Amino acid sequence: MKYLFRNDYSFGAHPKVMDAVCAVNLEGNWGYGDDQYTARAKDRIREVCGCPDAMVEFLIGGTQTNVVACSFLLKPWEAAICPDSGHLNGHEVGAFEATGHKILTVPATPEGKITPDMLPPLLELHQDPHLTKPGLVYISNSTENGAVYTKAELTALSEFCHKNGLLLFADGARLGAALTSDANDLTLPEFAHLVDAFYIGGTKNGAMFGEALVITRPELTDGFFRMKKRMGAVMEKGWIQGVTFLTLFEDDLYFKMARQGNEMAARLQNGLKAKGWTLWVESPTNQVFAVIPNQVKPKVDEVCDCEVWCPYDESHTVIRFVTCFHTTQADVDGLLAALPNL
């Protein structure tokens, strides 16, 4: 048996999501999100975020949401500040920069975070009117390295951004994993009120596809639907996303699925350490990073699909295992039994 731990979107959707979509499949609904399910889903998200005046819009995937939202929030001469490991910079083929906006990178912490003390030199440099003006700080929660921002960290970054005229945008592709992590001390409403815009990732947490973009400040939202349409991001059958996100936020399903992924990742991480494996970082979410000798990689490939993350040195490689809502204890224990001791 070969185990699948390559990412958290290898499986379709939670059965409750599939059942909900099938139940209204031939009902007939207005398109472009002008339907009752989308309206109810937006209201529900405003409720769980504690942001009654927020704009909520549904998009298809993470890259699309990052590009549409960040380019909408910035003036044409403004740039986004991003950790060098950030998805916007490192994994989206210049999609954001293709809109005409520049990415200004700063070296991330080993956890993949930005801290306020990293930013003043960059802001000082870009006072020159011949350079792009920083207008937005992009972060991910959880980060690309599996870490989460604490309340103190996010508060400090939020206060710095607002003091210096910067918007704070959070990539929430794995927001469920972050908010259900044992390392997290933020509620969803607290998180929402510390950022200017973020999205609730569905693709990587039990939805067939879809992200819910939340812009918490109404004064920033004028014309967003037109921008969304202009960039080809409006889905004709928008009611599917409405039904999906209504289901995700019934009976705590969204957080239950994320918690399942985290718990299985912790079991895998502890099991690897017990087998003598070295971790690249200690991750409190659903991504597990391990350092292995290069000669061991073929043995891993025989029993598991995972991802090569980065070189470690000439003779070692960092690989990544990812768990999800569909990962079971039997999957983890079976993989651990099949992997070699190191």
Rank of each mutant, 00 (worst) to 15 (best):
D331L: 02
N164K: 13
F198K: 00
L74S: 06
L73E: 03
A192G: 02
N262S: 09
L253F: 09
Y199M: 05
D53P: 04
F198D: 00
M231E: 12
V24F: 08
A156Y: 06
R6H: 08
K151D: 11
I60Y: 13
Y3W: 12
T65L: 08
A212M: 07
A197R: 02
C306Q: 14
T155K: 10
K204I: 00
Y32C: 12
W239P: 02
R174M: 14
A20S: 12
G242L: 11
E78W: 04
V318Y: 07
L104Y: 01
E307D: 12
N145R: 15
G176E: 04
G276W: 15
A233W: 07
P52E: 14
M231Q: 14
V288G: 14
T180A: 10
A330P: 01
A197H: 00
E314Q: 12
L122I: 06
D301P: 10
R6I: 06
C304A: 13
I215A: 03
L122R: 06
E159T: 12
F225L: 15
A338D: 06
H101T: 08
P340W: 03
Y199V: 00
P110G: 10
V234Y: 13
V21M: 09
D182K: 15
N141I: 00
A330H: 04
A266L: 09
D185I: 10
P52T: 12
V318L: 07
A290P: 14
Y312T: 13
C70V: 06
E307L: 14
G28V: 04
L248Y: 10
C22Y: 10
T278G: 09
P284I: 06
E190V: 03
K113H: 02
N145W: 10
D185Y: 13
G201R: 05
K273A: 15
D185V: 09
S158N: 08
F96Y: 09
H162S: 05
H316A: 06
L74M: 09
W280Y: 13
S140Y: 02
Y312Q: 13
K75Y: 06
D19M: 05
H326Y: 00
F225P: 09
N205A: 00
A98E: 09
L166F: 01
E97G: 10
D8T: 00
A183F: 11
L268N: 07
N89M: 08
D331Q: 03
M18S: 05
A178E: 08
A108Y: 02
G50P: 10
P121V: 03
G100V: 13
D35G: 09
A197V: 01
F245A: 07
